[in-house]
Design a binder for these strands. Structure first.
Length: 464
RNA sequence: GUCCCCAUCGUCUAGCCCGGUUAGGACACCACCCUUUCACGGUGAGAACCGGGGUUCGAAUCCCCGUGGGGACGCCA
């Protein structure tokens, strides 16, 4: 088998979204699986909508997700890697001119209305097109047979000449796409199913150039989740942008793992898998044919599973990156040891890093919010005011040197009153944290320290 | 409207190619257990072969027709 060369060819005309990332991922996985080459080609022929900002976003997103490219522009803007460049279509004008001339010389293209059209071979006739509400010229041709790695044989009629160069002199997508894939010796075209109906045009173009078409593999699309509505996922949908997960400090390996599972599976029950295993097992015949709906909850779950197993040091790095962008981040991180202790307390409890600030507020301010609902609930049960008073009296003389010591202190208090640990836990937590969720109350007491615990208990008792 | 693709729990999916399973797993949901709250974890429950025809002793699996979902019909990519 000849060398596998695949490409991801985004256009920098919008935000980088889940669908693009999944297409990139399948290409990248196939390249890595086969030991082939992964090419990044920038399709920036739409001068009106291109932007450098979006171009940078493509580089950043791919890099963040761990998809390195063997050929293509260097992300820092210092040139390119690979010997089939340039890799930005805006710089390939001469090549397109050459290929246009080939078609013109062969009689397979002609000018009309200032544009250049690709000429289909066959008998011509005119017919009224209902959809476009006008008469059009059609060509009788044999159907194009697309041999798709994922869908099998697909037949489609291509029966109209189409524009390959606009009247402003710029080539269109179908043309540059085919020319570049020929020039870059692309062996497999892995792209979204929305391109399946373009493929007949592309096949005709390959024939026009007298070359064998690459192998096609049209992957299923990612659709909106039921609560988001109908249709394919678009950039405007919640959770659609890669940037969003990056800003929420999701683990890129969790996102990649989730994306890989959308339309592909290892053939067994495994879900969370290291990237090396995914690479090893990924193959085109294993890709599903039906579209998949995006499920943010499942992504969150996977992210949590990944988070749980992060070594403390890596988790701390993530936490710091996150707090560095929070308004009070500097203050939160001011005391390294204190910060570390709290973060590690929170790590096994959260689903994503962006829950860290709300989850740990009360460690960093005396102005922490009191959850009204929780308060109503806690204050309605037993005699919390009495427990609070007893706790305040006992804490002063309690040993705060360790969780175990605090636990023993509270337990002996409880036993003295014929009560249990739980009778003090809820109200203590409410008073000291304002909520009912968090690490164990003994850890909270110890980390906060006796002085602050006493202050908070007193303050709460006064207003409750 | 025309053309193309697709069809198993609410969702992602295994099983389909090479007909015979109590149709399996995961997320979500519910219950219980664990427990010092909240999570995690554990156990369990509910939950699917879109419909109709064939073929066959036997169909989720093969064929056809409906229906439903998705996509494409630009001098966008």
């Amino acid at each position: 088998m000849s060398q596998v060369r695949v490409r991801f060819a985004p256009s920098p005309t919008g935000f980088f979204h889940i669908g693009s990332a999944r297409t990139a991922l399948f290409n990248w996985l196939y390249a890595r699986h086969t030991g082939g080459t992964f090419i990044l080609r920038i399709e920036d022929t739409d001068q009106a909508r291109n932007s450098e900002q979006f171009l940078k976003l493509i580089y950043d997103s791919l890099t963040w997700l761990g998809m390195d490219w063997d050929e293509g522009p260097k992300p820092d803007g210092t040139g390119e890697r690979g010997s089939f460049g340039p890799y930005r279509q805006s710089q390939r004008g001469e090549i397109y001119q050459r290929y246009k001339q080939k078609l013109l010389d062969a009689g397979r293209a002609y000018e009309k209305d200032g544009a250049v059209w690709f000429k289909l071979l066959g008998e011509r006739y005119r017919i009224f097109d209902d959809h476009r509400k006008k008469e059009v010229e059609k060509v009788k041709t044999a159907p194009v047979v697309i041999d798709d790695k994922i869908r099998g044989q697909v037949e489609r009629q291509e029966d109209e000449d189409f524009v390959i160069f606009r009247s402003d002199g710029n080539p269109v997508f179908h043309f540059v796409n085919v020319v570049d894939d020929i020039e870059m010796k692309v062996s497999h075209i892995i792209r979204g199913e929305d391109h399946l109906s373009n493929t007949s045009k592309h096949v005709r173009l390959y024939e026009g150039f007298g070359v064998t078409a690459p192998i096609f593999a049209h992957i299923p699309l990612i659709l909106k989740s039921p609560e988001m509505g109908q249709g394919k996922m678009s950039k405007r949908d919640k959770g659609a942008l890669i940037e969003e997960y990056q800003q929420r400090h999701f683990l890129p390996e969790a996102l990649v793992n989730y994306l890989a599972l959308l339309g592909w599976n290892p053939g067994d029950d495994r879900e969370k898998m290291p990237i090396a295993d995914i690479i090893k097992l990924f193959d085109l015949p294993g890709v599903n044919q039906s579209n998949a709906k995006f499920d943010g909850k499942k992504l969150s779950h996977l992210n949590m599973v990944y988070l749980l197993e992060q070594p403390a040091d890596r988790f701390l790095v993530l936490a710091k990156e996150y707090f560095a962008r929070q308004p009070n981040g500097a203050a939160v991180m001011a005391n390294e040891a204190y910060f570390r202790e709290i973060m590690l307390l929170a790590q096994p409890k959260i689903k994503s890093v962006d829950e860290l600030a709300p989850y740990t507020v009360y460690f960093f301010t005396e102005e922490y919010p009191i959850d009204a609902k929780v308060k109503d609930k806690v204050m309605a049960k037993g005699d919390p005011k009495a427990r609070l008073a007893e706790l305040i009296a006992a804490v002063a003389g309690m040993d705060f040197s360790s969780d175990a010591a605090i636990e023993a202190g509270i337990k002996s208090l409880a036993e003295g009153k014929g009560l249990g640990f739980g009778d003090y836990q809820a109200v203590a937590r409410l008073a000291v944290t304002g909520t009912n969720a968090g690490p164990s109350i003994t850890s909270i007491f110890r980390v906060l320290g006796k002085e602050r615990v006493l202050t908070r208990l007193g303050k709460f008792a006064a207003m409750a």
